[in-house]
Amino acid sequence: MKQIVSKEAFNEGLAKLLTEYDIYGPVRHPYRGTHSDTDKIQYQQVHSFDEMEWDEKSQFSPKSAVLPINQLLFYFVEDQWLEASETMRKILVFLRPCDLHGMKRMDEIYLNNGAPDYFYERRRKMIKFVVVGCKETYRNCFCVSMGSNVPEDYDAALNIRDDHFELDIIDEDLAVFAGREADFDIDYVTENTFSIEVPEEVDSQYLAEHDMWREFDSRCIACGRCNYVCPTCTCFDMQDIYYKENEDAGERRRVWGACMVDRYTDIAGGITFRSKYGSRMRFKAMHKIYDFRKRFGYNMCVGCGRCDDACPQYISFSETIEKVGAVMKQKLNEEDPA
């Protein structure tokens, strides 16, 4: 159902939804950025639309709403254990089209990659998505190149206009807004400031030995910002906590992991598989534009460009994709000069 809704009616509708739903959106925190007198924009629970920040790209993606940064799985006492509870309330996440495409990839990894993940599924089934149309591209965005610019499979979508909203409600549970019917399309960008070509032919064995990754050995600092801001990085780490007062009791959490950060490939016996930062970069790049695609038929990267926004070393992931493309092209030329 497509309708035009006034600001007041929109807020009234949200207030109705808030009785049943926890609402998540991007929130600006003044003075809480990395550097002094800069802001932080992160996803979190909100209680009104005005709390959300849509003028600037959020530094962090909405994945924290679906996959909590720290997720308590169970408590243990000696040989007994108790499952941690999950929210009983429904969840509504406001996000950009690229990020909704990111959610599809999260679902792929957690639900369709072998047996569904119990803890993910438990929370995921409570969640609905509202896409916020994108009128203009931000710096470093390349969603058009990744095909994630068009909003798809949303529960609701909206265009933010000067004094009203254009609302497209698909899920009837969300049809609580008073407004008049109208026809419109949800905004999406058709052009970014640059476009890239993701190579079709990727020889991962050849690339694994290629020296194109060596520049990152010294350029990258392995801070993991690219992973943590990424809407499609799904890795986690396990933490077992033994309570100080009684070490026979404790809890197991899972916590966001990052393939660029130390200890990711550590295994028992003191072995580390990818010590070189360039090798970690290769692993990440191959996952985003090659091996996920091999399994699921489309690229993992959605082109939100947050990795480039966040990298303190000015490493561009979109340029890295282009470098992979150039290496593959050169290989094909060498094999068949014609």
């Binding site: 925190h29 003044p30 003075y31 809480r32 990395t34 801070c223 943590y228």
Partner: peptide, 19 residues
């Protein structure tokens, strides 16, 4: 010195708005 904030990739560390 603020190195914790500057180097926190998650911005779990932030500086107080009061200076």
């Amino acid at each position: 010195c603020g190195e914790c904030v500057l180097n926190c990739p998650m911005l779990a560390w932030t500086r107080s708005p009061k200076k």
